[in-house]
């Protein structure tokens, strides 16, 4: 391990401090709006906490709107998408990294291809399709669409990470009598934990903040996920900015919690040093 000198520490912290300031300042503005009375988007000072701050908007969210239900719905949908994403991507990515089978190249490329069509143009046919499959007003329709949007990246990213793990590890396991699947499940999967974290985070985020598809699929307020609920505070010319900002902050909290929890495992993978690549 290299030694980091005091000067280096100072420079690193300075750089990180600047990056943090840049990264959180706009979010602090959102918080400012959410604790201001009334619904003004603009603040004309740089101060973060306004003089007349209040939590009214946060209270209103839960008293005047079924915000609790929306949170629950979102968790249900998102957790399923995340689970689907992690399961399917970790297996598919593994196969694409380790095996040469007919259609491998084509699969890899067509995964990418699915991301290339402008999403705005897919909405109408997706709606027609879901409608004819009677999946309007069901979470199933939503979950299928979200999973399929998140999967291409997840598969690619898993595959890319598996590529960095030497074959010799599985070979050793196979020699010790493990089946193919066991070698994958017991040896490789734990090593790929950073990629699993990325996959989980990505699947989570693609479902957690999505509202365009959700707004087409869900027609009942009591079935809404958080983002469409949130969108109902935004109107053409009469947006309730305070509520909107407060809602956005609440939407962010579970995401932040998950990031906090998962990023620990981002570093958790065993070091490969024990096996010379």
């Amino acid at each position: 391990m290299k030694k980091t000198s005091k000067l280096q520490y100072f420079m690193i912290y300075t750089a990180l401090f600047m990056a943090v300031a840049w990264s959180i300042y706009p979010i602090l503005r959102v918080i400012t709006i959410s604790i201001r009375p009334g619904d003004n988007l603009l603040t004309e000072s740089l101060s973060i906490i306004p003089e007349d701050w209040t939590f009214d908007n946060y209270i209103k969210l839960f008293t005047d709107h079924p915000f609790g239900t929306w949170i629950w719905n979102s968790i249900l949908v998102t957790a399923t998408v995340m689970l689907t994403g992690v399961t399917l991507a970790s297996t598919a990515g593994y196969a694409l990294s380790r095996f040469r089978f007919p259609g491998r190249e084509a699969s890899l490329f067509s995964l990418l291809v699915t991301q290339m069509f402008p999403a705005t143009m897919l909405l109408l046919p997706l709606f027609i399709m879901l409608s004819s499959l009677h999946l309007i007003n069901t979470y199933l329709g939503l979950i299928v669409i979200y999973s399929s949007t998140a999967l291409p990246f997840c598969v690619w990213s898993m595959k890319g990470y598996y590529d960095t793990i030497p074959y010799s590890l599985e070979e050793a396991a196979r020699i010790d009598g493990a089946s193919r699947f066991m070698a994958f499940y017991k040896i490789i999967l734990p090593l790929a934990s950073p990629a699993l974290v990325i996959t989980a985070l990505f699947s989570f985020m693609s479902a957690w903040t999505e509202y365009i598809v959700a707004a087409q699929v869900l027609w009942y307020e009591e079935m809404f996920t958080l983002p469409i609920g949130l969108k109902s505070f935004q109107a053409n010319m009469t947006t309730e900015w305070g509520l909107y900002a407060a809602g956005a902050m609440i939407v962010s909290i579970p995401a932040i919690a998950l990031f906090l929890f998962l990023t620990k495992y981002l570093i958790g993978g065993l070091t490969l040093g024990s096996v010379k690549g």
Binding site: S23, K231, I256
Partner: peptide, 21 residues
């Protein structure tokens, strides 16, 4: 740990509000 999470925040907060901000 805390720096990492602060740096990830722009991804965690819905972009339809941060873009307007």
């Amino acid at each position: 740990g805390i720096i990492r999470v602060l740096l990830i925040l722009p991804w965690a907060v819905p972009s339809y509000i941060t873009a307007l901000t």
